[in-house]
Design a protein around this nucleic acid. Sequence first.
DNA 1: AGTATACACGAACAGGTGTTCTGTGTCAAG
DNA 2: CTTGACACAGAACACCTGTTCGTGTATACT
Lengths: 235, 235
Amino acid sequence: MKKSRPLSDRQKGMLKYIWSYVNDNGRPPTIREIGSAVNISSTSVVNYNLQKLSEKGLLERDAEVSRGLRLTEQAMSMYESAKEAVVGTKTAVAEAVGSLLRIPLVGSIAAGKPIDLPDTGYGIYDDEDMVELSSAMISGRKDGLFALRVKGDSMIDAMVNDGDMVVMREQKTAENGQMVAVWLKKDDTTTLKYFAHEGNRVKLTPANPTMEPFYVNAKDVEVQGRVIMVVRQTP
Amino acid sequence: MKKSRPLSDRQKGMLKYIWSYVNDNGRPPTIREIGSAVNISSTSVVNYNLQKLSEKGLLERDAEVSRGLRLTEQAMSMYESAKEAVVGTKTAVAEAVGSLLRIPLVGSIAAGKPIDLPDTGYGIYDDEDMVELSSAMISGRKDGLFALRVKGDSMIDAMVNDGDMVVMREQKTAENGQMVAVWLKKDDTTTLKYFAHEGNRVKLTPANPTMEPFYVNAKDVEVQGRVIMVVRQTP
DNA sequence: AGTATACACGAACAGGTGTTCTGTGTCAAG
DNA sequence: CTTGACACAGAACACCTGTTCGTGTATACT
């Protein structure tokens, strides 16, 4: 559920000013330039409203960089009505929009503890805690999906970095060849490994091809979920 | 009549950098950013050459204003051919109408060769060759995006596996801290590294935190694009 | 009543950024 | 050889600029 408030007069003015400033000068304005153009005395208020506009997807900001802001296509279209292109593709996109999956980002995953899902279970989530993926990117069932943020460097064996996002599906069992998050009872450790049954043992293979697989007694592992996808956003 | 000297290599480099920076970031660079890009340690030298370029009518400056410079038509025309290639990529933007981005999967990336984009440039794509991502997942500009499939194990230093997908943006320049695909001329190798200017050298840091950064002469690296995202779909 | 949220203001801070000044070396003309 | 224009380096300075903190004021909801 999105609570998208309408733009205030100030925010509309700021947007328009930024647009025309870039048009006139070939570079974005500073916070203080925006402020004096819209009669805002405090830079923090400009900053505040810029952030609001950013949250609405109308502009993007580069932190700690002077003039580090940029209008998005969405905002540009408000001023450049003539710039529509390729109507043909529009229908295809319209169909595709419906197949957008919104996956809750429910917690984090680290080596030292089992996956921590909020006690409430799956319920209501803020917009910030959702990951949007095209359903075309995900094969198989699309229910029971959730995403976790990886904390720490403990998963580099699995080619997963600190800060990466792991999209998973609730599963207590796994088939051979699937990548799973397993809880190793002996070590009190959660790891990501390729999974394979081998008699009463389980073969766990790191994703890093330079590392050797190892074997664990089937009683000592607990499948916590299947890894569908790993996403890393680089700065 | 003024005696108009030909441009020095430095000035040509500055001009080109400014042009690609504006193209990449939507705003002009600072004096120090230009300096580190062209191996000039002193801001006064950059200032000096900027003034020369200004006298030659290749750019205009706004005094006492950060990022207060702008290429003239005359200078822009020097890069006309390259500009058209960029305009070509705009088709990818046109399809980004909704909140869903359709990014062309244009080829593969491997250690032994530069990024191979189809000679045809960006044009028509099959549906199978498109990657769908929510635009909310991608920060920064959304034009000039393309995706590559990673071939081989040569990128494990960058925590990127065989078969992973890399979403990139066409960029000839990079800011400190960004992950880029760089072509190392000496080694005939393409690698993914975190990028940082350091004087006349470039610091390249592997994503794998257990590995040490190394340094290369700025002349021997060529930024081929910026890595926006790495996506791994597990079986 | 109290609590939460959105919005606004002003001040202060740290680092970014253009400018300026002094000095050094090169090279061709006088 | 001397001179002066040209190109460059380094440091210092003053202002610019984004960020953050504390505070205040409405409005809506419990």
